[in-house]
Amino acid sequence: MNTGDAIRLHSVRFHWNQERPILDIPALHVAAGEQVFVKGPSGSGKTTLLNLVGGILSPQVGEVSVLGRNLCAMSGAQRDRIRADHIGFIFQMFNLIPYLSVLENVLLPCHFSKARMRRIRAAGETPQTAAERLLDHLDLASDLLRVPVTELSVGQQQRVAVARALIGSPELVIADEPTSALDADRRQAFLSLLQEECQRGNTTLLFVSHDDALESGFQRHIHLQDITLAMQGGTA
């Protein structure tokens, strides 16, 4: 086993109720800096898997390690700390807090993580300049900084979410169908920006999508059916 793995699942079994497990994964390794495309039918447990990695859920059996730390041996508070310090999330929609400005939304993780603040300072930046740099890279004009997020288009909102996930250079970014609310022609551009930013910081990217068109942008593809022994209820 490679100790440099960003994510490592070992004999993980997870079930919601007392029924059969929704996930039963003997082993899954994602190396640091790797960008992985995860796909699977609806209801197959992709979001559940991301929640396991994010420390929101704990498997009934097995071990989930993120950045070399075994989440299953931690308390809820410790897992919350790992998530705050090391993981950025991007969801399908409604990523932003409506009553905060663009800048405030991007800065949000800094308030819950001293580690992110430290890394920003170590890079010779302030949270503000780091946010501005990220937004600039993501093609968001600086005059949008103080605008209420409710005035942004969906595509702009998703890019703000990317900036927020990346601020303070977390080692891992988890994206759960971040493009499904975007137009087909905007998806590719969005993905390129996201991948570019992850590459720049050697950030591991776990990207879930239904959209096969995006698959080609990734070197590694994981089909959930291939890694889990659980009987899939969904129909692809």
Partner: peptide
């Protein structure tokens, strides 16, 4: 609830 979920994802704990 949506707002709380977002806060959770950026590192807020249930106690927060």
């Amino acid at each position: 609830r949506r707002e709380m979920a977002v806060l959770r994802s950026v590192g807020a704990r249930p106690l927060h």
